[in-house]
Design a protein around this nucleic acid. Structure first.
Lengths: 339, 339
DNA sequence: CTGAAAGCGCTTACAG
DNA sequence: CTGAAAGCGCTTACAG
C-alpha cells in the first residue's frame, strides 16, 4: 500500500490536516512543524495521491491535447511533434500534465472530449486543428472549459481563443513572391478542404492572383483529398494544362518533395522548368536537393502560445478571448527561379 | 456545478449505490431500473467524475508515455509520432487514456515519472527509449508498476518487458547486404552512444565485418554526439581517409539525406561514388532523390505491442516479463550500387 | 434486487 | 499555529 497523508501524520505526531497544509506550504504552519513533517515525508517516500487531491480541489492540473490519430499523415508530418513540443514546454513550466486524445475518427474524438471535460479529467484543452463544422469545437464553446485552438475557427473567431499564423497574408505574399519572379501560371496544392488553414491559404492565393490581374482557375488547384486518390495523376493533369504552371505552391515541405518526385517522372526539372515552394520548413529541407524554398510558420511557437493561453484562461477565467498571430516568414532557397 | 450520481439518484428515485451499479452494468440490477436510470443519466447529461471513480477503484485507466522532449531531434524524427500512433491505437481499444511526460532533461523526467507512479496518475507506463544507466528504468523496475520499454534494456533484459527489433542482426544483415554488393570500406553513422539501439547496431556492424574478414576501424564510425558538433566536417573527415568508405550505413533516413547533402558538397555522388542506406523508412524516402534503400523497423508495431504488453500486465499482474521482437526488413531502392 | 454506511486520500472552513 | 469534522463523487461489502 502506498504511503498516505495519515501515515505521515502519525509518524510526525501531527494531524492529517497539518500535513496537508505543509504540502500546500501554508504560511500559518510553523517552520518547525514544516521541517519535521517534510523530513517524515522524505523518510517515508510520501507522494500525494493526485486522484484524491484533484477530487477535492476540483481541478486536475492537466491539459487535454486533441489531435487526429487517423491519418498516418497527421503523424508523419513534422507539425504534430513540433507543436506538441511547444505545448509540452509551456505546460511543464506551469506544472501542468498533458493528456492526449486517442480517437481515430471524428466521432471517437468527440466522445473522448466530452468525457474529458465532464469527467473533470482536464482543466483546459488545446485543440490542434480547426475544421469546418467541427462538433468538438462547438461543444467546447458551450462547455465553458478554457480552451485554445491552433488555427483560426471557422465560425465566430472573436469569441474563441486561438493561435494562428496569418495564413491569408502569408499565402498571398508567397504567391506574390512568385509573381515577382515573373510567374503567371501558379498552381496551388493545398490540404484537405475542410481545414480552415487550407481555405485561408487558398484565399490568400486568390487575392494575390487578383491583385496582379491573373484570373483564378480551379484547374490550377489540387487539394489533398484529391491527392489521396492518385497523386501522381493529379500532377500529370496539372502539367498537361494548355498553359502548364511554371510554379507550384504546396502546403507542406514533404508534399513538395513528393510533387518534385512526380515532376521528375515527367522529366520536368525543379527549379529549371518549374519553381516550387513549401510550408513548414522541415528540418531536412535545406539539406535536400533542391534545397526547398519554404514558409517557416513557427510551429513550436504556435504550440507554446496555445498552451500559454489555456493556462492563462484557467488561472483567470475573466480574461476575454484572445487571438495570437504567430509570424511566419518565407525562406528563400534554391527551388524557385526567376523567369 | 456538474451533475453527480446523487442528482441522478434523486431524479430516478433510487439510491446513489444503484446508480453506481447501473454504470458498472451490474447484473444484479433489474433491467427495468437500469432503463430508468440510464434515461435519467441521458436526460441530465451525466458523466462520471474520473477523479472520484479512480480514487476508489485505485486505478486511473491511463497509460503514461515517457519520452524525451529536449532535442528537437527526438520530435522531428518520424519515430515519435509513429510509435505514439501505435500506442494510441492500442490504448484506445482498451479504453485507456494517454498521459505524456513533459520534462526536457533526464532529471525532470525522473521526477515526473515518480510523481506519476506514486501519485497513482497512471496504471502503467510505456518508456519510449532505452539508454545506459537510466535511473528512470531502474526506478520503474523496483516500483512494481507495469511497464514496457520500446528498446532492449541494457541491464537484465530478461526481467523487463520490452519490444524491440533484433537490432544486432538487422544491422548485421544490412552490412552484409553491402558486403554482398562488393563493398569493403563501410562507414557507420550511428545515434547517441548512450542508447542501447545504437550499441546494438554497432555490434551488428562489427559482427558483419568480422564474419567477412574485414577489420573494424573506429575511423569509419561516426556517432550522433560527434555529429552535433560539426556534421559536415565529420563527413569530410570520413571521406578523407586513405581508403574512403564506398558505403555508409546511417541510423535514420533523414540523417542519410543530410549526409548525402554533405557528400554532394564534396562532389561525391550517391550511389555512383558512395552507396548509402538508412533506417526507419520515412514516408518520403521513396520519393526523394536518390530513392533511399532503408530498413523498415515497423515503428507503428513497436508502439502497438508496447501498449499491448502494458495493458496485459495491468490486467493480469502474474504474467511474466515478456520480450517481443518486431521484424524489420531491408527495402532496396536506388541508393546502393554493386561495386 | 436495492439501500445505508463506510471509506478511497485528500482539503478546508470552523474552532480554539 | 493546529486539530476535528465534513465533504469532494464515487464504489462496494454488508444487510435485508
Amino acid at each position: 500500500m502506498a504511503v498516505t497523508i495519515k501515515d505521515v501524520a502519525k509518524q510526525a505526531n501531527v494531524s492529517p490536516a497539518t500535513v496537508s497544509r505543509v504540502i500546500a506550504d501554508n504560511p500559518r504552519i510553523s517552520v518547525k512543524t514544516k521541517v519535521k513533517v517534510r523530513e517524515v515525508m522524505k523518510e517515508l517516500g510520501y507522494y500525494p495521491n493526485f486522484q484524491a487531491r484533484n477530487l477535492v480541489a476540483k481541478n486536475s492540473r492537466t491539459l487535454g491535447v486533441i489531435m487526429e490519430n487517423s491519418a498516418a499523415l497527421a503523424f508523419q508530418n513534422p507539425f504534430f511533434p513540433e507543436v506538441l513540443r511547444g505545448i509540452s514546454t509551456r505546460a511543464h513550466e506551469s506544472q501542468y500534465g498533458l493528456y492526449l486524445s486517442t480517437g481515430a475518427t471524428q466521432e471517437e474524438i468527440y466522445e473522448e472530449v466530452i468525457e474529458m471535460v465532464q469527467g473533470r479529467r482536464v482543466d483546459g484543452i488545446v485543440l490542434l486543428y480547426s475544421k469546418i463544422g467541427d462538433p468538438v469545437m462547438e461543444y467546447l464553446c458551450q462547455s465553458g472549459l478554457p480552451f485554445a485552438v491552433v488555427g483560426r475557427p471557422y465560425k465566430n473567431p472573436c469569441s474563441v481563443t486561438y493561435v494562428d499564423n496569418d495564413n491569408i497574408n502569408t499565402a498571398k505574399e508567397t504567391v506574390e513572391y512568385l509573381i515577382g519572379l515573373g510567374h503567371r501560371q501558379i498552381a496551388f496544392v493545398g490540404g484537405a478542404t475542410d481545414f480552415v488553414v487550407s481555405l485561408d491559404r487558398l484565399e490568400g492565393y486568390k487575392q494575390a492572383l487578383n491583385k496582379h490581374g491573373i484570373l483564378f482557375d480551379v484547374a490550377y488547384t489540387v487539394n489533398q483529398e484529391f491527392m489521396q486518390g492518385d497523386k501522381s495523376e493529379a500532377i500529370r493533369r496539372l502539367m498537361a494544362l494548355e498553359l502548364p504552371p511554371t510554379a507550384i505552391v504546396t502546403h507542406d515541405d514533404m508534399v513538395a518533395y513528393e510533387v518534385i518526385g512526380y515532376l521528375e517522372d515527367l522529366k520536368i526539372q525543379v527549379p529549371e522548368d518549374v519553381s516550387i515552394i513549401g510550408f513548414n520548413n522541415h528540418m531536412i529541407s535545406k539539406h535536400l536537393k533542391p534545397p526547398l524554398s519554404t514558409v517557416d510558420i513557427s510551429i513550436y511557437d504556435l504550440g507554446l502560445h496555445a498552451a500559454e493561453l489555456v493556462v492563462e484562461k484557467i488561472t483567470d477565467a475573466s480574461v476575454p478571448p484572445k487571438q495570437v498571430v504567430v509570424p511566419s516568414r518565407l525562406i528563400e532557397r534554391g527551388s524557385c527561379r526567376r523567369l
